[in-house]
């Protein structure tokens, strides 16, 4: 008899070693996430994937599924908290969607749509985050960083280059590149590295691409993220 748990009241079958998020996903249930990626071990920083198990909040990307657990995910309470986490991410950086090339294909924006984040609650930080255009093929706009570390992990674990890392801490934490000059152009990042192509938001952008897809035809113009994410594993 296979093991199962209840996800928003519906039974989900799982195998030992699967996390709640993995098992729910395999059963066709979407749990919002930003730092989680199917090709990488769980990271657990964005906290969008929080769910409630036996009255306690846990990160579903990291919590192993257990027989008989009752998981609440798509509830007004949890979605309200997720919306607030998004609002935190929006005020912490400088997210100006109309001028962002990633708009329409951005996971942060798409999740905000899906979770009906129409407006803001907190005051903006308006941090100083200069852009880095020193690389011939890739632009870095730190204003939009959500610290998911996917570029860090991709560069370290897949590309074997360690181009990106985080430094400082707390609200002053920020992305740095592997060069004494601090310039991306002085690293060995190549445009086809996974790290250059994995950013879920608009920090790492290819130059000379621009607003390639017309408004109305971009990924999340067509379908919401809870459908897209289940289709292509992003």
């Amino acid at each position: 008899m296979s093991k199962r748990f209840l996800f928003d009241g519906r039974p989900v079958v799982f195998e030992d070693g699967q996390t709640i998020l993995q098992a729910a996903r395999a059963a066709g249930h979407y749990i919002p996430h930003l730092c989680w990626h199917p090709d990488f071990p769980p990271h657990g920083s964005c906290k969008l994937c929080i769910v409630k198990v036996a009255g306690r909040h846990v990160s579903s990307c990291a919590m192993p599924a257990k027989e008989g657990m009752e998981v609440e995910s798509n509830t007004p309470e949890i979605n309200g908290e997720r919306r607030a986490l998004l609002q935190m991410l929006f005020v912490e950086g400088n997210h100006f969607c109309p001028s962002c090339e990633k708009s329409g294909n951005c996971q942060l924006q798409a999740l905000a749509y899906d979770l009906e984040m129409t407006g803001e609650r907190f005051a903006h930080f308006f941090p100083e985050r200069p852009v880095d255009s020193s690389h011939p093929d890739v632009l870095l706009d730190f204003n939009r960083c959500i610290f998911c570390e996917l570029c860090v992990r991709a560069s370290r674990d897949v590309d074997g280059k360690n181009v990106f890392a985080l430094t400082n801490r707390g609200i002053n934490k920020h992305l740095v590149v592997n060069a004494e000059s601090g310039r991306l152009g002085d690293t060995d990042l190549a445009a086809d590295d996974l790290a250059a192509n994995i950013c879920p938001v608009g920090v790492i952008l290819k130059k000379r691409v621009g607003f390639a897809t017309p408004i109305g035809e971009r990924t999340y113009d067509v379908k919401p993220i809870h459908i897209v994410a289940m289709e292509d594993g992003k």
Partner: peptide, 10 residues
């Protein structure tokens, strides 16, 4: 705060 997770960092 180490700044790792959204709720604590922000």
């Amino acid at each position: 705060s180490c700044g790792f997770c959204t709720p604590c960092r922000v």
